[in-house]
Design a protein around this nucleic acid. Structure first.
Lengths: 143, 143
DNA sequence: ATAATAAAGGATGTTTTTGTCCTTTATAGG
DNA sequence: CCTATAAAGGACAAAAACATCCTTTATTAT
């Protein structure tokens, strides 16, 4: 479904959002330890997300990654789009290039419905929403 | 979502089902031409599906792939499971190994709902169902 | 029997994704 | 200013996915 990069990216940004809500920045080592992801690989992903203004970062002592005020409303779909693009939401389920309403593949409509509900779910879920359950210990980012 | 192998596999088996309904077998060259897929790669996929009894084949002149009587009721999910396994239906959306009802990831329930609706769609759709629209020229397997 | 046909199977090559390592740049604190 | 820290960035390595090629086996028709 999502690429590994995207899975790590989502888990990392949720963790960052949580730390951010507590007014703290999160370093890459800490992040990867908490979400059980490979450090260097995840660092690349966060670099990209930072360049794309999904998350913010500062270098140096006490530096790290965080969500700035304007980014508190970031939704999961923003993270997914930044990492995997939107082929998941626009591409044909059977991989047919020119699949469309007028020239549909055999599962066009059924697939579209599922894809849309996935998209809607990602659109309505913000990182900050998810931190609440995380902080209550109701959900987990590793194991 | 699905692997390339799975996309080709589904398109090929739908085409085979259609030819089969007309009492014909389909050769690999013909199949790949009609679905716009790479020949040798698709041949491997069909070999696997044949070994797994999803489709049948005969060698030699007038040979080819077909659905035998007992396989006319094959559902899309059988093809997907044979090629991609069932990680799409059982795995965690965020790639967390031990994600479960008791130790859920942050999107566990939302993701499960979507996954289930995908699974149900694939379970209720048979290859033979899809051939009807194909034969009417309402849906397409390439371009 | 023999030749032609078409799938089966094995080996190999390419590309993409995933993952690691090392150097450079920016920042904070002494 | 100098040093330590932590992200940024580039180069490289491993694994998986995607794809091709060539030989073998089974079947049909002559």
């Amino acid at each position: 479904m999502f690429s590994k990069a995207c899975e790590y990216g989502i888990r990392a940004t949720i963790y960052i959002a949580s730390r951010s809500r507590q007014g703290e920045r999160a370093g890459i080592k800490d992040i990867c330890k908490e979400i059980g992801a490979p450090e260097h690989f995840t660092a690349k992903i966060l670099q990209n997300l930072s360049r794309m203004k999904i998350i913010s970062s500062v270098k140096g002592p006490n530096g790290g990654f965080y969500l700035d005020e304007g980014a508190k409303n970031i939704k999961l779909i923003d993270v997914v789009r930044a990492i995997d693009g939107d082929k998941l939401f626009t591409g044909c389920g059977l991989g047919i290039k020119e699949c469309s309403e007028t020239k549909p593949c055999p599962i066009h409509n059924e697939f579209k419905a599922i894809r849309n509900s996935l998209q809607q779910m990602l659109e309505r879920t913000s990182l900050t929403d998810l931190t609440k359950d995380l902080e209550k210990g109701l959900v987990f980012l590793k194991r």
